[in-house]
Amino acid sequence: MKTMTPRFQVGDRVTVRDATTMFHTRTQGFTRGQTGTVVEHRPAWIVPEDEAFGIMENGRYTPFYVVRFKQTDLWPDYTGFEVDTLETECSEMWLEPAGKGKK
């Protein structure tokens, strides 16, 4: 397990990059372009973009984050309640400061 200095801090608002994905991804389509809040740090690991193709020794390590989204942000026709949330994890390469990316 490697220790890395994370670019984002707990409480930061972040937007998930809306990039084209070919063949495989661990960044769900429903999170793309969406803005949430960093709620926890996770240990650095090889990004799945490398791991999925067996690139381990030369795989890129990055910090990972738990990002919390409001369900009413993710789904405009959300049928639950305002308080509901969804958490998922993102590698640093998928995140940018909120407001910087296209939305």
Binding site: D18, F30, G33, L74, W75, P76
Partner: peptide, 11 residues
């Protein structure tokens, strides 16, 4: 690609 939720739904 999913720039908005509507487009995502369409996809």
């Amino acid at each position: 690609m999913a720039t908005t939720s509507t487009q995502y739904d369409q996809l």
